[in-house]
Design a protein around this nucleic acid. Structure first.
Lengths: 340, 340
DNA sequence: AAACTCACCGAAAAGGTTTTCTGAAGATAG
DNA sequence: CTATCTTCAGAAAACCTTTTCGGTGAGTTT
C-alpha cells in the first residue's frame, strides 16, 4: 500500500495546453464534433494519448445528466438467481462504457428504498430490479426518472416492464421430454406451494399431461425446496405408487433427494425410473449418480435481455410494458436417458 | 415505463432560496460546519426536509475527489467465493454512503485491465480485488492512485495488502475436531494439487496429526474438486485401509461423495466413520445424510475486513501490507458427532 | 477594394457543491 | 465613546467537462 503522492489526475486542460489549443477545442476534438480542423484534432488526440487522458465522468455526468452507470437492485445476493442475471447484464453492458452499481436490499423494503435513493442520487441511467422468487413483487412506482426493468421477479404493476422465466412452458417441456422417453406414469414432487415457480411448473406439467391424454400419478407433492423433502417424498411416492416410471422434481435439490431414495430402494435410474429436476444447477446436476436431466431457466439470457431493454429505453425506444417470459432450455443427462 | 417529465432534481440553491440564505450558508448548515447560527441551521434543515433535498454526489465528488464508491474487481462472478465477500463488503460499506461498482474480469487479464481503467476513470475511492483461488495472483501494480486490497486470492507482491483464508489453520482445526471425537486413523481426500487451498489444508492436517503423534492414513489423495472424486477416492481408501475411522475431505463436494460411498458400503456415519468437509456450503452440508460437519472460511467477515481496510486507508490510516489470514470456523454437524 | 462567406478557434457559461475569504453586525473591554 | 473581538452570513473561486456563441482570419465575390 505504500504509494507515492497520488498524481493529480490529468485533465482536459492539461491536454489542451500540451496541444496548444483551448479546452473547448480539445473537448470538441476528442468528442468528434466538427468545427475542428483535422490537423488540430490529430494534435489533440496525440496529446491526450501522451498524457493518457481519460475524461472525468463526474464532470461529464454533472452536465450531461448521463453517467454511464446502471443500478442493479437485488433482494437475493446470497441466492443463486441474481448471479447469472448479473453476468448477463454485464455481458450486455460490458462492451460499452457502462458500469454496474450493485446493491443488495436483503429483502427489506426500507433498505430497498434507501438503496434506491442512493442509486438515483448517483444519477444512474437505468435500473434493473432482481427478485428472489418469480412471484410478483411491489412496483417501485412510476416517479422514477430513469427506465426500470424488473428481472426474475416481475412487478405487480402491469405498466412496468418485467422479464421472468416461463415456468409454465418449462413444466411442459419437462413432461414432453419424459413422454418422449416413453414414460407415462409420471409423478411431480416440488417445493413450497407459496412459490409461483412451483405452481407454474406444476400447471405446465398438468397441461402437458392432459394434452397427451394422461394423468399425473398422485397429486402434486408440495413442501419445501430441499433434498430432504425430495428423499422423503420419493419414499412416500414409491410406497404408494410402485408403478411410477418417472419422477419430475421441482428443483435439482429435490431431484437429488429423489435419486438418493431410488438408490436406497434399489430402483435403477433411468431404467426403472426417470428422474429430472429444474434449474440446472451444475454443482448438483453433474455430480449426481446418474447425472441429472434438468431445465435451465436461461437466467444469463434473461439478464442480457433486461440490460438490453434498459439500453433501448435510454436511447428513447419505447420498450413497452407487461411481463416478458424467457423460455427454459432442456438439458438432457443420464437420469432420463441411458447413456451409451 | 410511461413516465411524466422527470422533475428536475432539487438542488442546494432551491433549499437556500426557501430558507432565505445563500447556498454557502445552506451547505455549511447541512454539513454541520460551524459558522452558522443554530436557528439558521434549523431553518435550512427544515427547508431541505420539505424539499426532500439530497445532494448531488457527482458535484460533490467533482470537488472533493471522493466519490463514495468502491470498485470490486472479481475474476469469479460465477464462483461462490465472491458472493459472501461482496456481502461482507456491502455490510461494512452499507451503513455509510458508499456504493459498490462490481466488475467481472472472467479471469481474463485484458478484461481486468479494461475494467480497472474504467473504475479508475470513475474515480472510485478504493478497490477490492477478489480472486477465485487462494493462490497468489499478479499484483495490479503500485501506480494506482487509490487503496487496493486483495481478498481471497492474495497478491504476489508482498507490499500489497491481501486478506485470505487461513487454510493451514483450517486444516489443523479440522484434525483437532476429529481427534476430539476420538478418531485416530484419519485419511485426507482433497482437490487439485495445483490449488494452494488444497496444499495448505493438507499441510495443516499433517502438522496437527504430527503434533498429536499420529500419521495420516495413506497419502493425501489429490485429484479434482468433485463429488465424483469424493466417491471414487473413498472407495479406494476404504478398500485399501478398511480400518480408517475418519475421512477429512478438502471440500464439501468431495465429502458428499465420500458420504455416498460410505453409505453404499454400509459404513455408518458417524459410527464407523466420521466424515467432514471444508467450505460449509450450506446447500451441500445441511442436506447431506447425516448433515456434514465442515469448516466455514468466514468469507463474509473476510469481505468486511477488506472493506474496512479500504476505509481505513481512505482516512489516511496506514493499513500496512503483506497477507492477513482470516481463521476458519468449525461447524459441527452429524457427520462427525452422533446427534441425540 | 469593399463586402461577404466560410472554416475554425476560444471565451464563457453551465452544471451543483464545498471552501475560503471578506465583511458586517453586535459584543466586550478599555 | 472608541478600539478590538467575536459571530455569523455571503460572495466567489474551485472542481472538470460540454456547449453555445461570438470573433478572427482567410478566401471569395462584386
Amino acid at each position: 500500500m505504500a504509494r507515492t503522492e497520488p498524481a493529480r489526475a490529468v485533465t482536459l486542460s492539461d491536454v489542451a495546453r500540451l496541444a496548444g489549443v483551448s479546452v473547448a477545442t480539445a473537448s470538441k476534438a476528442l468528442n468528434g464534433r466538427d468545427q475542428v480542423k483535422d490537423t488540430t484534432r490529430q494534435r489533440v488526440i496525440e496529446a491526450a494519448d501522451r498524457l493518457s487522458f481519460s475524461p472525468n465522468p463526474l464532470a461529464r455526468g454533472l452536465l450531461a445528466g448521463r453517467t454511464g452507470t446502471v443500478g442493479l437492485l437485488t433482494s437475493d445476493l446470497e441466492g443463486r438467481f441474481v448471479i447469472p442475471i448479473l453476468m448477463g447484464a454485464e455481458d450486455a453492458f460490458g462492451a460499452g462504457q457502462v458500469n454496474v452499481f450493485l446493491c443488495d436490499a436483503r429483502g427489506d423494503t426500507i433498505r430497498e428504498q434507501y438503496h434506491l435513493r442512493a442509486l438515483l442520487s448517483r444519477r444512474v441511467d437505468g435500473l434493473i430490479v432482481v427478485g428472489r422468487q418469480t412471484d410478483p413483487r411491489p412496483s417501485l412506482g412510476h416517479d422514477i426518472p430513469v427506465p426500470v426493468v424488473y428481472a426474475y421477479a416481475p412487478s405487480d404493476d402491469a405498466s412496468d416492464l418485467s422479464i421472468t422465466p416461463d415456468n409454465v412452458s418449462a413444466g411442459r417441456i419437462a413432461v414432453e421430454h419424459l413422454l418422449a422417453c416413453g414414460r407415462t406414469r409420471i409423478a411431480h414432487i416440488t417445493g413450497e406451494h407459496a412459490y409461483a415457480a412451483a405452481r407454474d411448473r406444476a400447471a405446465g406439467v398438468e397441461a402437458a399431461l392432459h394434452a397427451a391424454g394422461l394423468e399425473l400419478v398422485g397429486d402434486v407433492m408440495y413442501s419445501e425446496w430441499s433434498e430432504r423433502w425430495g428423499r422423503d417424498a420419493a419414499a412416500m411416492l414409491l410406497a404408494r405408487h410402485p408403478d411410477v416410471d418417472a419422477v419430475l422434481c421441482g428443483s435439482d435439490q429435490i431431484a437429488r433427494g429423489a435419486l438418493d431414495t431410488a438408490r436406497d430402494l434399489h430402483r435403477t435410474v433411468p431404467g426403472d425410473l426417470a428422474v429430472m429436476g429444474f434449474d440446472n444447477w451444475e454443482v448438483l446436476t453433474t455430480n449426481a449418480r446418474p447425472e441429472l436431466t434438468s431445465i435451465d431457466a436461461n437466467l444469463q439470457q434473461l439478464g442480457r435481455t433486461a440490460a438490453q431493454r434498459v439500453f433501448a429505453a435510454l436511447d428513447g425506444v419505447d420498450i413497452g410494458s407487461g411481463t416478458e417470459y424467457v423460455p427454459g432450455r432442456l438439458v438432457i443427462r443420464g437420469s432420463t436417458v441411458a447413456r451409451r
